[in-house]
Design a protein around this nucleic acid. Structure first.
Lengths: 201, 201
DNA sequence: CGCCGAGTTGAACTGAATCAAGAAACGTGG
DNA sequence: CCACGTTTCTTGATTCAGTTCAACTCGGCG
């Protein structure tokens, strides 16, 4: 029996049986990407969803002013895809790039649709994933609408404590919508305040 | 035959037949909400999706500082739901409120799932809706990450020319993540510049 | 008529961006 | 394994977009 993260992810979130999993895996390919390699570039069409088995990806956009804005990080057990290009005719606006050496499952979008039609448990699973994604994006919007630089950073490290160590501050700043210099100052301030409270205890 | 916007929306985006539509409508109810009425409040559980047949809704959050942040407007032919409470156990974080007298279809989320399982065309339709929603949220995040107050406003009026007239500036500002005062100044600046270009032509 | 919320305008303030320069960490090739 | 160049991170000085607070206008409505 295969012992991928992907298998564990599927079996622990659904009650899909082995026959189903075998069919799913026979329609997926796994590919390795070296750090820095691109899985998708703007104006390409994104044919599949990516499941990150190992490593770390980022999805980002370069705006007219040449600045990079990170839409999301995708560490182990995350899905990424460019929904825009997968479901509509539009070519992608985003880069998807490996920021660590990574192993990724490629899943055809049409295959997901046909599995959903044939297997109610998978349909439910896929819907939950999509709704989870929506929920996540909504939280991010609220954060960008209401939180200061410090609040955004504190929120980030509480949600992604591991990423804080794996990702450069430049990228974290880009994800938070602040400059790297500001992030550095925020961290300095927090460290100073933490020292104080530790000394008082 | 019923002549709702909802019917037109469904038939023009899918090839669902009349039998199907009859079943769908027999499982939906339509309700009217007066301006100011709430469809959902925080800590309630949102049982269904709403399709706006007529009128205008807003979905928003009140943060710890007491400020209102609008997640989305929903005019005619839009769906709104609190995915978070519909699909997970968490009670809602958001208000959904009518800002005009409105007529709204209520669609049970479980019913959507069962229709998706039984009707491939509806499955496809629903997936497209969800992906469209994701695409929309992603665009909004890029906007909040990269655009100035003026760029956000110009983007807003280009996407929602009608809403610009139906919605108070206070709400537009809240949607854009700026203060009403700033929005007023942005508009003043734009008007001044437009006059100049008009005089030059 | 008087009230109230929406919108405008001004003045002062501020959080974060920008620009610039130096220090630390990193990796790559000799 | 060290030396070098490159990138990341830090820190400071300055600027700026947008906020805050306050006063005032306008239009609708009981």
């Amino acid at each position: 029996m295969n012992r991928f993260n992907f298998t564990t992810f599927l079996t622990s979130n659904t009650n899909l049986d082995q026959v189903f999993l075998d069919e799913l895996f026979s329609n997926c390919s796994i590919r390795k990407y070296a750090k820095g390699e691109f899985l998708l570039r703007p104006n390409q069409k994104c044919e599949h969803s990516f499941f990150v088995e190992k490593g770390l990806l980022k999805q980002y956009h370069i705006d007219e002013k040449g600045k990079e804005h990170i839409l999301q990080f995708a560490p182990e057990n995350w899905f990424v895809a460019d929904r825009e290009s997968a479901y509509f005719d539009n070519p992608s606006l985003y880069f998807i790039q490996a920021i660590e050496d990574s192993a990724v499952f490629l899943i055809d979008e049409n295959f997901i649709l046909s599995l959903s039609a044939s297997t109610p448990a998978f349909l439910k699973f896929n819907h939950t994933l999509l709704h989870n994604h929506i929920r996540h994006l909504q939280k991010r919007i609220m954060m960008l609408l209401s939180a200061t630089a410090e609040e955004r950073y504190l929120n980030f490290i509480s949600i992604y404590p591991d990423l804080t160590l794996r990702v450069s501050q430049i990228m974290i700043a880009s994800y938070l919508g602040i400059t790297p210099e500001s992030l550095s100052r925020v961290r300095k301030d927090l460290a100073k305040r933490n020292h104080h409270t530790q000394n008082l205890s």
